[in-house]
Amino acid sequence: MSTVLRIEDLTRVHGQGESEVHALRGVSLSVDSGELVAVMGPSGSGKSTLLTIAGGLDSPTGGTVTIEGVELGGLSRALLARLRRRSVGYVFQDFNLIPALTAAENVALPRELDGDSARASRRLAMHALDEVGIGELADRFPDDMSGGQQQRVAIARAVVGDRRLILADEPTGALDTDTGEQVLRLLRARCDAGSAGVLVTHEARHAAWADRVIFLRDGLVIDETGPPAAVDSLLGASTTR
């Protein structure tokens, strides 16, 4: 299995002087293809910062991020954008679909932005929507869909065009339990099909879908476990300290 995402000694400082906040203080992590890694931790632990830097949306204060062998540090904004179109897919808690575009157009967006023809993009988008099981809703606008349907569209957008790295930030946060389970099953299936996945969550139940769990607190990895069964005890340890 090849390593898709490699993070080494990542630090991130927000602000300066008195208002300085150390969001990450030397985090290292690598995710192979076919692997789903859950990142857990309390609010303010640096989970989301880790994800934005991993996808090239934000840049680190120190350390390196490498995606499929390409180090992000030296890339221009335009090249970072291309990386997000071709290699990285994001899934957000509140879906972040563009309300002015239909489901199919939302999914096709990364391909269209990459310069594919509208027709070719749509074909790929339809394929991705079929994979997440809502091909028949392709021409609906986000406002006319349920939360679960919208999150499926978001996942389809994250994987369209055969992208190898999926970064999901609390993808089930706005969904009911059953829908949330379905969304995680979908994510798991994508990773089993060969993608690498990073799942930020604070629910142990969801972390159970992952191959590995890393636990962040105050910007540091305080533990990393192979079998997810150990997560519960770990949580307990951290919160009672």
Binding site: G55, L57, R77, A78, A81, R82, L83, R84, R85, R86, V88, G89, Y90, F92, N96, L97, I98, P99, A100, L109, P110, L113, D114, R157
Partner: peptide
């Protein structure tokens, strides 16, 4: 703005 942020996240160029 939110739409542009989303576009940026999925790889829109400047």
């Amino acid at each position: 703005r939110p739409d542009f942020a989303t576009m940026s996240a999925v790889g829109a160029g400047p």
